[in-house]
Design a binder for these strands. Sequence first.
DNA 1: GTCTATATGATGATAGAC
DNA 2: GTCTATCATCATATAGAC
Lengths: 197, 197
Amino acid sequence: MVGSKKRDERSEEARTRILDAAQTLFAVHGFNATTTKAIAEQAEVPGGLIFYYFPTKKALLAGVLSERNILVELRTVGETLITPDPRAALIALALRYLNTLKQHKELACIMLREFRSHPEVASQFHELREEHVQFIASFLQESLRAEQYEPMRDLQVIARMFLYNLIVIGIIEDATEPLHFVENMVDILLCRLGKNV
Amino acid sequence: MVGSKKRDERSEEARTRILDAAQTLFAVHGFNATTTKAIAEQAEVPGGLIFYYFPTKKALLAGVLSERNILVELRTVGETLITPDPRAALIALALRYLNTLKQHKELACIMLREFRSHPEVASQFHELREEHVQFIASFLQESLRAEQYEPMRDLQVIARMFLYNLIVIGIIEDATEPLHFVENMVDILLCRLGKNV
DNA sequence: GTCTATATGATGATAGAC
DNA sequence: GTCTATCATCATATAGAC
């Protein structure tokens, strides 16, 4: 017996598929250029079902941004990253950031596209940046402790440069092989902190 | 005699006002969220006149991006910028970039918003970045010539970091007082090139 | 919860007077 | 070149059967 479950071929629930479809289409075409009809088709649900789960199209955007929050996964990006060499640690951190951005590219694209029209997106995006500037600065200080580097000197600015470069190459550019740039970037940033690299 | 000129109070021509209105509204709300009706109202022209000058709404976007080309003014950003001190030269260059971005903020916002939906915008944006990475690298080399710096070392990467940071603080952030960050950034970047700053 | 049919309003674009 | 009136289409959202 397969039981009374209606559609076995469509494993996820309708609501999840609607969120998935909206996330993808909002990222590619933008919020306003995406019709609820297109979302319903991509999700393989009838058009009316969207408004059973979400009162308005805007609520659907809010749902995507809150339930698929990139913040959560980004917060774990620095965990279990213990390397004696600060240079290797920073390179690994940068690659993890880029990888996480890649996995959540759709969310990042939505933020970049919509933050000017939707204030709640703007503030979420801004908090995301500031939180990670702080985190990277702390990470830098941790990495450089008990080293020949001078901590606390320009740490905030270096962390900001680190993050801003990752934002551009992770969201705006589609760098397929960022390792070379990341290595060079880390060398340049570390140079300021130490005698030599 | 004031002559036969119809509207003296509206000094610019209708076509120009349409472009102005479209530029502003596209930047604030995005292309798809901006209606031709809203553009006509902001431009103080009847709705039908837009389609006398531009065959479609998309042609209006293309008109804004081609006739208000930010490239032209950005190309002059490095002219008449001769300073014996490389640090001062780079800080001045960065502030000029930020100032030009500020003056053409609407165009920059449109590019950032629409480059994923409109391939021609994407390529224009990409060319813009690459051209200026090259220019900044050349500018760096010029500035560092006959100095104690070692030119050609990481110049491309440093130029890229320079530009990418300016893109983020110029278009994504709305930094009111970027001088402090710019000075720190230049120090960090120059550090890699010389013995000390 | 799922689906169909449809209401209601707005949108890009056109026709044609002046 | 400017302006008005309007069309055809498509959007979000709803009502109600199943």
